[in-house]
Write a protein that binds this DNA or RNA. Structure first.
Lengths: 237, 237
DNA sequence: CCAAAAGTGTTGCAATTACACCCATGG
DNA sequence: CCATGGGTGTAATTGCAACACTTTTGG
Protein backbone atom coordinates (compact mmCIF):
# COMPACT_ATOMS: atom_id res chain seq x y z
CA UNK A 1 0.00 0.00 0.00
CA UNK A 2 1.83 3.09 -1.21
CA UNK A 3 1.22 6.55 0.19
CA UNK A 4 2.16 8.68 -2.80
CA UNK A 5 -0.28 11.53 -2.36
CA UNK A 6 -0.81 11.90 -6.09
CA UNK A 7 -2.01 8.37 -6.43
CA UNK A 8 -4.90 8.82 -4.09
CA UNK A 9 -8.06 10.78 -4.62
CA UNK A 10 -8.48 14.13 -3.05
CA UNK A 11 -10.97 13.97 -0.30
CA UNK A 12 -12.06 17.09 1.48
CA UNK A 13 -12.46 16.66 5.22
CA UNK A 14 -14.83 18.95 7.04
CA UNK A 15 -16.20 19.19 10.54
CA UNK A 16 -19.87 19.87 11.21
CA UNK A 17 -21.02 20.74 14.69
CA UNK A 18 -24.41 20.09 16.23
CA UNK A 19 -24.81 22.63 19.02
CA UNK A 20 -27.70 21.87 21.33
CA UNK A 21 -29.14 23.93 24.13
CA UNK A 22 -32.31 23.99 26.19
CA UNK A 23 -34.57 26.98 25.90
CA UNK A 24 -37.72 25.58 27.37
CA UNK A 25 -37.44 22.87 24.76
CA UNK A 26 -34.43 21.45 22.98
CA UNK A 27 -32.96 23.84 20.42
CA UNK A 28 -30.27 23.35 17.80
CA UNK A 29 -27.99 25.92 16.24
CA UNK A 30 -28.39 26.30 12.47
CA UNK A 31 -26.92 28.69 9.94
CA UNK A 32 -28.49 29.75 6.68
CA UNK A 33 -26.53 28.70 3.62
CA UNK A 34 -25.54 31.50 1.29
CA UNK A 35 -24.60 29.51 -1.79
CA UNK A 36 -25.47 26.52 -3.91
CA UNK A 37 -26.12 23.79 -3.38
CA UNK A 38 -28.88 24.17 -0.84
CA UNK A 39 -28.65 27.98 -0.95
CA UNK A 40 -31.00 29.57 1.55
CA UNK A 41 -31.52 26.32 3.38
CA UNK A 42 -30.68 25.79 7.03
CA UNK A 43 -27.53 23.78 7.70
CA UNK A 44 -25.21 22.88 10.53
CA UNK A 45 -22.24 25.16 11.17
CA UNK A 46 -19.04 23.64 9.85
CA UNK A 47 -16.08 23.98 7.56
CA UNK A 48 -12.84 22.53 6.31
CA UNK A 49 -10.20 21.06 8.52
CA UNK A 50 -6.96 22.98 8.11
CA UNK A 51 -3.67 21.28 7.37
CA UNK A 52 -2.18 21.62 10.81
CA UNK A 53 -5.07 21.28 13.15
CA UNK A 54 -6.62 18.23 14.76
CA UNK A 55 -10.26 17.34 14.31
CA UNK A 56 -11.43 18.51 17.72
CA UNK A 57 -9.38 21.64 17.27
CA UNK A 58 -11.15 22.31 13.97
CA UNK A 59 -14.54 21.82 15.59
CA UNK A 60 -13.66 24.26 18.35
CA UNK A 61 -12.49 26.83 15.83
CA UNK A 62 -15.58 26.54 13.65
CA UNK A 63 -17.75 26.94 16.69
CA UNK A 64 -15.98 30.15 17.64
CA UNK A 65 -15.81 31.54 14.11
CA UNK A 66 -19.30 30.84 12.99
CA UNK A 67 -21.20 31.28 16.18
CA UNK A 68 -19.11 33.19 18.66
CA UNK A 69 -19.49 30.35 21.14
CA UNK A 70 -16.28 30.29 23.10
CA UNK A 71 -15.08 26.93 24.16
CA UNK A 72 -14.05 27.97 27.61
CA UNK A 73 -17.30 28.47 29.41
CA UNK A 74 -19.05 25.25 30.20
CA UNK A 75 -19.14 23.75 26.76
CA UNK A 76 -19.18 20.03 26.22
CA UNK A 77 -17.71 18.88 22.92
CA UNK A 78 -17.41 15.30 21.73
CA UNK A 79 -17.02 13.52 18.44
CA UNK A 80 -20.24 12.10 17.08
CA UNK A 81 -19.16 10.16 14.00
CA UNK A 82 -18.13 10.52 10.39
CA UNK A 83 -20.35 10.77 7.35
CA UNK A 84 -18.82 9.94 4.02
CA UNK A 85 -21.31 8.71 1.46
CA UNK A 86 -19.77 9.54 -1.94
CA UNK A 87 -22.92 11.36 -3.02
CA UNK A 88 -23.47 13.46 0.07
CA UNK A 89 -22.05 16.59 -1.54
CA UNK A 90 -22.78 16.96 -5.26
CA UNK A 91 -19.59 18.88 -6.02
CA UNK A 92 -16.85 16.67 -4.68
CA UNK A 93 -16.00 13.93 -2.29
CA UNK A 94 -16.40 15.25 1.23
CA UNK A 95 -16.01 13.28 4.41
CA UNK A 96 -17.44 15.11 7.37
CA UNK A 97 -16.52 14.47 10.96
CA UNK A 98 -19.50 15.49 13.06
CA UNK A 99 -19.23 16.84 16.58
CA UNK A 100 -21.80 17.26 19.31
CA UNK A 101 -21.67 20.36 21.49
CA UNK A 102 -23.83 21.04 24.51
CA UNK A 103 -24.04 24.45 26.12
CA UNK A 104 -26.19 26.44 28.52
CA UNK A 105 -28.68 28.77 26.86
CA UNK A 106 -26.64 31.86 25.99
CA UNK A 107 -29.85 33.91 26.12
CA UNK A 108 -28.77 36.58 23.68
CA UNK A 109 -28.92 35.76 19.97
CA UNK A 110 -25.71 34.21 18.78
CA UNK A 111 -23.02 36.80 18.03
CA UNK A 112 -21.99 35.31 14.75
CA UNK A 113 -18.94 35.50 12.56
CA UNK A 114 -18.84 34.00 9.09
CA UNK A 115 -22.42 32.94 8.90
CA UNK A 116 -24.42 36.07 9.49
CA UNK A 117 -27.55 34.26 10.49
CA UNK A 118 -26.75 31.66 13.10
CA UNK A 119 -29.67 31.02 15.40
CA UNK A 120 -31.03 28.47 17.82
CA UNK A 121 -34.22 26.94 16.49
CA UNK A 122 -36.47 24.30 18.09
CA UNK A 123 -35.10 20.84 17.39
CA UNK A 124 -38.41 19.02 17.26
CA UNK A 125 -39.60 20.21 13.82
CA UNK A 126 -36.20 19.41 12.34
CA UNK A 127 -36.28 15.92 13.80
CA UNK A 128 -39.68 15.35 12.25
CA UNK A 129 -38.52 16.54 8.82
CA UNK A 130 -34.80 15.89 8.61
CA UNK A 131 -34.88 16.77 4.92
CA UNK A 132 -35.22 20.46 5.72
CA UNK A 133 -31.54 20.68 6.49
CA UNK A 134 -28.92 20.81 3.75
CA UNK A 135 -26.88 17.74 2.76
CA UNK A 136 -27.28 14.88 5.22
CA UNK A 137 -27.36 17.27 8.15
CA UNK A 138 -30.81 16.05 9.13
CA UNK A 139 -29.41 12.63 9.79
CA UNK A 140 -26.46 14.07 11.70
CA UNK A 141 -28.84 16.08 13.87
CA UNK A 142 -30.94 12.99 14.52
CA UNK A 143 -27.87 11.04 15.58
CA UNK A 144 -26.73 13.90 17.80
CA UNK A 145 -30.03 14.13 19.62
CA UNK A 146 -30.19 10.38 20.08
CA UNK A 147 -26.68 10.40 21.51
CA UNK A 148 -27.61 13.20 23.88
CA UNK A 149 -30.76 11.44 25.04
CA UNK A 150 -28.83 8.26 25.70
CA UNK A 151 -25.99 9.95 27.55
CA UNK A 152 -28.24 11.81 29.96
CA UNK A 153 -29.17 8.42 31.36
CA UNK A 154 -25.80 7.51 32.71
CA UNK A 155 -23.58 10.62 32.70
CA UNK A 156 -23.54 14.07 34.27
CA UNK A 157 -23.83 15.68 30.85
CA UNK A 158 -27.10 17.46 31.63
CA UNK A 159 -25.11 19.92 33.73
CA UNK A 160 -23.46 21.15 30.52
CA UNK A 161 -26.89 22.40 29.46
CA UNK A 162 -27.29 24.41 32.69
CA UNK A 163 -25.58 27.57 33.91
CA UNK A 164 -22.58 26.95 36.15
CA UNK A 165 -24.77 27.07 39.24
CA UNK A 166 -28.21 25.58 39.04
CA UNK A 167 -31.01 24.12 41.11
CA UNK A 168 -32.18 20.53 41.05
CA UNK A 169 -35.40 21.68 39.38
CA UNK A 170 -33.45 23.40 36.61
CA UNK A 171 -31.48 20.25 36.03
CA UNK A 172 -34.70 18.28 35.90
CA UNK A 173 -36.16 20.64 33.31
CA UNK A 174 -33.14 19.87 31.13
CA UNK A 175 -33.91 16.15 31.29
CA UNK A 176 -37.56 16.83 30.56
CA UNK A 177 -36.75 19.02 27.57
CA UNK A 178 -34.30 16.54 26.06
CA UNK A 179 -36.41 13.47 26.69
CA UNK A 180 -39.72 15.14 26.00
CA UNK A 181 -41.70 13.92 29.00
CA UNK A 182 -42.08 14.93 32.66
CA UNK A 183 -40.21 13.30 35.53
CA UNK A 184 -41.30 13.02 39.14
CA UNK A 185 -39.65 15.99 40.88
CA UNK A 186 -39.35 14.19 44.20
CA UNK A 187 -37.73 11.02 43.01
CA UNK A 188 -35.51 13.02 40.67
CA UNK A 189 -34.33 15.15 43.54
CA UNK A 190 -33.52 12.17 45.72
CA UNK A 191 -31.69 10.45 42.90
CA UNK A 192 -29.35 13.23 41.83
CA UNK A 193 -28.61 14.51 45.31
CA UNK A 194 -28.05 10.98 46.55
CA UNK A 195 -25.48 9.97 43.91
CA UNK A 196 -22.02 10.56 45.45
CA UNK A 197 -20.02 13.46 43.93
CA UNK A 198 -22.61 13.95 41.24
CA UNK A 199 -23.61 17.39 42.50
CA UNK A 200 -21.91 19.64 45.02
CA UNK A 201 -23.97 22.17 46.96
CA UNK A 202 -22.61 25.71 46.85
CA UNK A 203 -24.37 26.63 50.09
CA UNK A 204 -26.25 29.46 48.42
CA UNK A 205 -29.93 29.32 47.65
CA UNK A 206 -32.14 31.07 45.13
CA UNK A 207 -35.79 31.89 44.74
CA UNK A 208 -35.70 32.53 41.00
CA UNK A 209 -38.61 30.42 39.87
CA UNK A 210 -40.68 31.25 42.94
CA UNK A 211 -41.67 29.14 45.90
CA UNK A 212 -39.41 27.85 48.60
CA UNK A 213 -35.74 28.76 48.13
CA UNK A 214 -33.77 26.06 46.33
CA UNK A 215 -30.25 24.93 47.04
CA UNK A 216 -27.77 25.85 44.32
CA UNK A 217 -25.43 23.15 43.00
CA UNK A 218 -22.42 22.86 40.77
CA UNK A 219 -21.53 19.77 38.80
CA UNK A 220 -19.47 17.30 40.84
CA UNK A 221 -16.50 15.17 39.89
CA UNK A 222 -18.47 12.02 39.14
CA UNK A 223 -18.35 11.31 35.44
CA UNK A 224 -21.12 8.76 35.56
CA UNK A 225 -24.49 8.62 37.26
CA UNK A 226 -24.79 5.24 38.90
CA UNK A 227 -27.37 3.83 38.94
CA UNK A 228 -28.57 5.61 35.80
CA UNK A 229 -31.59 7.85 35.50
CA UNK A 230 -34.42 5.66 34.21
CA UNK A 231 -35.63 6.98 30.88
CA UNK A 232 -39.22 6.04 31.25
CA UNK A 233 -42.40 8.04 31.32
CA UNK A 234 -43.78 8.15 34.86
CA UNK A 235 -47.36 7.37 35.72
CA UNK A 236 -49.54 10.42 36.02
CA UNK A 237 -51.05 10.57 39.47
CA UNK B 1 -16.75 29.07 2.25
CA UNK B 2 -15.55 28.04 -1.20
CA UNK B 3 -15.15 24.44 -2.26
CA UNK B 4 -12.50 24.82 -4.93
CA UNK B 5 -10.63 21.54 -4.49
CA UNK B 6 -7.30 23.15 -5.26
CA UNK B 7 -7.62 25.61 -2.45
CA UNK B 8 -7.87 22.96 0.20
CA UNK B 9 -5.20 20.65 1.47
CA UNK B 10 -5.17 17.07 0.38
CA UNK B 11 -6.08 14.84 3.19
CA UNK B 12 -5.86 11.12 2.81
CA UNK B 13 -8.77 9.25 4.32
CA UNK B 14 -8.26 5.68 5.43
CA UNK B 15 -10.29 3.11 7.28
CA UNK B 16 -8.78 0.95 10.02
CA UNK B 17 -10.67 -2.02 11.34
CA UNK B 18 -10.47 -3.54 14.79
CA UNK B 19 -11.60 -7.15 14.42
CA UNK B 20 -12.29 -8.84 17.75
CA UNK B 21 -13.08 -12.44 18.47
CA UNK B 22 -13.14 -14.72 21.48
CA UNK B 23 -10.76 -17.63 21.57
CA UNK B 24 -10.86 -18.47 25.23
CA UNK B 25 -9.86 -14.88 25.82
CA UNK B 26 -10.42 -11.77 23.75
CA UNK B 27 -8.28 -11.67 20.61
CA UNK B 28 -7.69 -8.92 18.08
CA UNK B 29 -6.67 -9.22 14.44
CA UNK B 30 -3.34 -7.60 13.61
CA UNK B 31 -1.22 -7.50 10.48
CA UNK B 32 2.53 -7.07 10.32
CA UNK B 33 3.65 -3.90 8.56
CA UNK B 34 5.99 -4.42 5.64
CA UNK B 35 7.28 -0.90 5.21
CA UNK B 36 8.33 2.25 6.98
CA UNK B 37 7.28 3.80 9.14
CA UNK B 38 6.77 1.16 11.80
CA UNK B 39 8.07 -1.60 9.48
CA UNK B 40 7.80 -4.99 11.13
CA UNK B 41 5.45 -3.69 13.79
CA UNK B 42 1.95 -5.00 14.31
CA UNK B 43 -0.85 -2.76 13.10
CA UNK B 44 -4.55 -2.80 12.45
CA UNK B 45 -5.73 -3.86 9.00
CA UNK B 46 -6.80 -0.88 6.94
CA UNK B 47 -6.31 1.14 3.81
CA UNK B 48 -7.41 4.04 1.69
CA UNK B 49 -10.98 4.89 0.97
CA UNK B 50 -11.59 4.76 -2.78
CA UNK B 51 -13.23 7.59 -4.66
CA UNK B 52 -16.58 5.95 -5.16
CA UNK B 53 -17.13 3.94 -2.06
CA UNK B 54 -18.71 4.86 1.25
CA UNK B 55 -16.86 4.53 4.53
CA UNK B 56 -18.59 1.37 5.68
CA UNK B 57 -18.16 -0.07 2.23
CA UNK B 58 -14.42 0.62 2.43
CA UNK B 59 -14.20 -1.08 5.82
CA UNK B 60 -16.00 -4.13 4.47
CA UNK B 61 -13.66 -4.30 1.49
CA UNK B 62 -10.51 -3.96 3.57
CA UNK B 63 -11.72 -6.67 5.84
CA UNK B 64 -12.24 -9.03 2.94
CA UNK B 65 -9.01 -8.10 1.13
CA UNK B 66 -6.65 -8.17 4.03
CA UNK B 67 -8.09 -10.91 6.12
CA UNK B 68 -10.45 -12.99 4.00
CA UNK B 69 -13.21 -12.32 6.49
CA UNK B 70 -16.38 -12.20 4.47
CA UNK B 71 -18.97 -9.78 5.64
CA UNK B 72 -21.88 -12.09 5.10
CA UNK B 73 -21.58 -14.61 7.83
CA UNK B 74 -22.45 -13.23 11.22
CA UNK B 75 -20.16 -10.26 11.24
CA UNK B 76 -21.03 -7.16 13.20
CA UNK B 77 -19.52 -3.96 11.82
CA UNK B 78 -19.97 -0.48 13.22
CA UNK B 79 -18.15 2.81 13.06
CA UNK B 80 -15.98 3.53 16.05
CA UNK B 81 -14.73 7.06 15.47
CA UNK B 82 -12.23 9.13 13.53
CA UNK B 83 -8.63 9.84 14.39
CA UNK B 84 -7.01 12.81 12.77
CA UNK B 85 -4.17 14.29 14.77
CA UNK B 86 -1.94 16.04 12.22
CA UNK B 87 1.11 14.16 13.45
CA UNK B 88 -0.34 10.68 13.55
CA UNK B 89 1.31 9.67 10.27
CA UNK B 90 4.76 11.17 9.73
CA UNK B 91 4.45 11.21 5.93
CA UNK B 92 1.28 13.15 5.28
CA UNK B 93 -1.99 14.23 6.71
CA UNK B 94 -4.14 11.15 7.22
CA UNK B 95 -7.56 11.03 8.80
CA UNK B 96 -8.56 7.52 9.68
CA UNK B 97 -12.11 6.37 10.23
CA UNK B 98 -11.96 3.40 12.58
CA UNK B 99 -14.43 0.53 12.53
CA UNK B 100 -15.19 -2.17 15.05
CA UNK B 101 -15.91 -5.68 13.78
CA UNK B 102 -17.02 -8.60 15.93
CA UNK B 103 -17.00 -12.15 14.61
CA UNK B 104 -17.14 -15.72 15.83
CA UNK B 105 -13.80 -17.45 16.14
CA UNK B 106 -13.03 -18.63 12.60
CA UNK B 107 -10.84 -21.36 14.07
CA UNK B 108 -8.49 -21.67 11.11
CA UNK B 109 -5.76 -19.04 10.75
CA UNK B 110 -6.94 -16.12 8.72
CA UNK B 111 -6.75 -16.77 4.98
CA UNK B 112 -5.18 -13.45 4.14
CA UNK B 113 -4.84 -11.35 1.05
CA UNK B 114 -2.65 -8.25 0.93
CA UNK B 115 -1.16 -8.57 4.34
CA UNK B 116 0.54 -11.92 4.38
CA UNK B 117 0.62 -12.20 8.12
CA UNK B 118 -2.78 -11.42 9.51
CA UNK B 119 -3.40 -13.23 12.79
CA UNK B 120 -5.54 -13.08 15.88
CA UNK B 121 -3.45 -12.31 18.92
CA UNK B 122 -4.52 -11.97 22.56
CA UNK B 123 -5.84 -8.47 23.20
CA UNK B 124 -4.74 -8.18 26.80
CA UNK B 125 -1.00 -7.60 26.21
CA UNK B 126 -1.79 -5.00 23.56
CA UNK B 127 -4.12 -3.18 25.92
CA UNK B 128 -1.40 -3.08 28.55
CA UNK B 129 1.16 -1.71 26.09
CA UNK B 130 -0.73 0.22 23.42
CA UNK B 131 2.55 1.55 22.07
CA UNK B 132 3.37 -1.83 20.52
CA UNK B 133 1.00 -1.12 17.67
CA UNK B 134 1.95 1.20 14.82
CA UNK B 135 0.66 4.78 14.60
CA UNK B 136 -2.10 5.47 17.13
CA UNK B 137 -3.55 2.01 16.64
CA UNK B 138 -3.07 1.20 20.31
CA UNK B 139 -5.48 3.93 21.25
CA UNK B 140 -7.95 2.80 18.58
CA UNK B 141 -7.81 -0.74 19.94
CA UNK B 142 -8.36 0.52 23.47
CA UNK B 143 -11.40 2.50 22.35
CA UNK B 144 -12.75 -0.52 20.44
CA UNK B 145 -12.48 -2.84 23.42
CA UNK B 146 -14.08 -0.29 25.72
CA UNK B 147 -16.95 0.14 23.27
CA UNK B 148 -17.40 -3.62 23.08
CA UNK B 149 -17.38 -4.02 26.85
CA UNK B 150 -19.98 -1.31 27.23
CA UNK B 151 -22.25 -2.62 24.50
CA UNK B 152 -22.41 -6.13 25.89
CA UNK B 153 -24.25 -4.66 28.85
CA UNK B 154 -27.31 -3.53 26.99
CA UNK B 155 -27.31 -5.11 23.53
CA UNK B 156 -27.37 -8.56 21.99
CA UNK B 157 -23.95 -8.02 20.48
CA UNK B 158 -22.33 -10.93 22.28
CA UNK B 159 -24.12 -13.26 19.87
CA UNK B 160 -21.96 -11.84 17.07
CA UNK B 161 -18.98 -13.41 18.85
CA UNK B 162 -20.65 -16.84 18.87
CA UNK B 163 -21.35 -19.30 16.07
CA UNK B 164 -24.82 -19.00 14.57
CA UNK B 165 -26.17 -21.57 17.04
CA UNK B 166 -24.82 -21.52 20.56
CA UNK B 167 -25.62 -22.56 24.09
CA UNK B 168 -26.26 -20.22 26.99
CA UNK B 169 -22.94 -21.29 28.51
CA UNK B 170 -21.08 -20.39 25.32
CA UNK B 171 -22.70 -17.00 25.34
CA UNK B 172 -21.70 -16.57 28.95
CA UNK B 173 -18.10 -17.41 28.17
CA UNK B 174 -18.11 -14.58 25.64
CA UNK B 175 -19.16 -12.14 28.34
CA UNK B 176 -16.55 -13.54 30.70
CA UNK B 177 -13.80 -13.27 28.09
CA UNK B 178 -14.66 -9.69 27.14
CA UNK B 179 -15.20 -8.46 30.67
CA UNK B 180 -12.45 -10.50 32.22
CA UNK B 181 -14.30 -11.93 35.22
CA UNK B 182 -16.67 -14.84 35.85
CA UNK B 183 -20.45 -14.54 35.99
CA UNK B 184 -22.88 -16.72 37.91
CA UNK B 185 -24.01 -19.35 35.38
CA UNK B 186 -27.45 -19.73 36.94
CA UNK B 187 -28.41 -16.10 37.12
CA UNK B 188 -26.94 -15.50 33.68
CA UNK B 189 -29.06 -18.29 32.27
CA UNK B 190 -32.24 -16.95 33.79
CA UNK B 191 -31.52 -13.45 32.61
CA UNK B 192 -30.83 -14.14 28.95
CA UNK B 193 -33.53 -16.76 28.52
CA UNK B 194 -36.03 -14.57 30.34
CA UNK B 195 -35.55 -11.46 28.19
CA UNK B 196 -38.27 -11.54 25.52
CA UNK B 197 -37.03 -12.19 21.94
CA UNK B 198 -33.43 -11.98 23.05
CA UNK B 199 -32.72 -15.62 22.26
CA UNK B 200 -34.78 -18.13 20.31
CA UNK B 201 -34.42 -21.83 21.04
CA UNK B 202 -33.76 -23.95 17.97
CA UNK B 203 -35.14 -27.07 19.65
CA UNK B 204 -31.88 -28.94 19.14
CA UNK B 205 -29.48 -29.71 21.96
CA UNK B 206 -25.78 -30.40 22.11
CA UNK B 207 -23.37 -32.10 24.45
CA UNK B 208 -20.23 -30.44 23.15
CA UNK B 209 -18.63 -29.31 26.34
CA UNK B 210 -19.76 -32.36 28.30
CA UNK B 211 -22.39 -32.77 30.97
CA UNK B 212 -26.09 -32.52 30.52
CA UNK B 213 -27.20 -31.63 26.98
CA UNK B 214 -27.67 -27.90 26.51
CA UNK B 215 -30.36 -26.19 24.51
CA UNK B 216 -29.12 -24.48 21.35
CA UNK B 217 -30.19 -20.91 20.67
CA UNK B 218 -30.04 -18.41 17.87
CA UNK B 219 -29.98 -14.67 18.37
CA UNK B 220 -33.49 -13.17 18.61
CA UNK B 221 -34.96 -10.02 17.18
CA UNK B 222 -34.48 -7.92 20.29
CA UNK B 223 -31.85 -5.29 19.65
CA UNK B 224 -31.46 -4.42 23.30
CA UNK B 225 -31.21 -6.42 26.49
CA UNK B 226 -33.56 -4.87 29.00
CA UNK B 227 -32.81 -4.73 31.84
CA UNK B 228 -29.10 -4.75 31.02
CA UNK B 229 -26.58 -7.35 32.12
CA UNK B 230 -24.93 -6.00 35.26
CA UNK B 231 -21.21 -5.58 34.67
CA UNK B 232 -20.09 -6.37 38.15
CA UNK B 233 -17.91 -9.06 39.56
CA UNK B 234 -20.02 -11.57 41.47
CA UNK B 235 -19.23 -12.73 44.99
CA UNK B 236 -17.28 -15.92 45.10
CA UNK B 237 -19.20 -18.55 46.98
C1' DC C 1 -53.89 32.86 54.26
C1' DC C 2 -53.07 30.70 49.80
C1' DA C 3 -50.44 29.20 45.84
C1' DA C 4 -46.24 27.46 44.37
C1' DA C 5 -42.13 25.24 44.50
C1' DA C 6 -38.50 22.52 47.48
C1' DG C 7 -37.59 18.74 49.80
C1' DT C 8 -38.46 14.24 53.16
C1' DG C 9 -40.83 9.79 54.67
C1' DT C 10 -42.96 5.66 53.63
C1' DT C 11 -44.97 1.72 51.47
C1' DG C 12 -45.52 -1.94 48.10
C1' DC C 13 -43.66 -3.94 43.98
C1' DA C 14 -40.03 -5.79 41.05
C1' DA C 15 -35.47 -7.18 40.09
C1' DT C 16 -31.34 -9.21 41.79
C1' DT C 17 -28.03 -11.86 44.46
C1' DA C 18 -26.42 -15.87 46.42
C1' DC C 19 -27.04 -20.33 46.91
C1' DA C 20 -29.53 -25.07 47.51
C1' DC C 21 -30.92 -28.33 44.69
C1' DC C 22 -32.30 -31.35 40.72
C1' DC C 23 -31.39 -33.15 35.71
C1' DA C 24 -29.02 -35.62 31.95
C1' DT C 25 -25.12 -37.11 29.90
C1' DG C 26 -20.17 -39.56 29.15
C1' DG C 27 -16.75 -42.36 30.89
C1' DC D 1 -22.00 -44.46 39.78
C1' DC D 2 -19.70 -40.36 39.72
C1' DA D 3 -17.83 -36.16 37.66
C1' DT D 4 -19.38 -32.53 34.80
C1' DG D 5 -21.93 -29.11 33.22
C1' DG D 6 -27.19 -27.59 32.37
C1' DG D 7 -30.96 -25.71 34.41
C1' DT D 8 -34.83 -24.43 38.33
C1' DG D 9 -36.45 -22.84 43.02
C1' DT D 10 -36.20 -19.56 46.63
C1' DA D 11 -35.16 -16.31 50.63
C1' DA D 12 -32.88 -12.01 51.88
C1' DT D 13 -31.90 -7.82 49.94
C1' DT D 14 -31.92 -3.75 47.19
C1' DG D 15 -33.86 -0.17 44.36
C1' DC D 16 -37.48 2.20 42.82
C1' DA D 17 -42.35 4.19 41.68
C1' DA D 18 -45.87 6.38 43.67
C1' DC D 19 -47.65 9.49 46.60
C1' DA D 20 -48.65 11.63 51.36
C1' DC D 21 -46.68 15.12 53.75
C1' DT D 22 -43.75 19.07 55.59
C1' DT D 23 -41.02 23.39 54.66
C1' DT D 24 -40.35 28.07 52.99
C1' DT D 25 -40.98 31.63 50.17
C1' DG D 26 -44.00 35.56 47.43
C1' DG D 27 -48.31 37.86 46.85
Amino acid sequence: VAYDPDRYPRVAVTVDVVVLTVRGTLHALVVRRGEEPFAGRPALPGGFVRPDEGLTEAATRELAEETGTTAGDRLHLEQLGSYGEPSRDPRMRVVSVAYLALTADPGAPVAGGDAASAAFVPAEPLLRRPGRLAFDHGRILTDAVERTRAKLEYTGLAAALCPSEFTVAELRRVYEAVWGFPLDPRNFHRKVTGAPSFLVATGATTTRGGGRPAQLYRRGDAEYLDPPMPRREAQVG
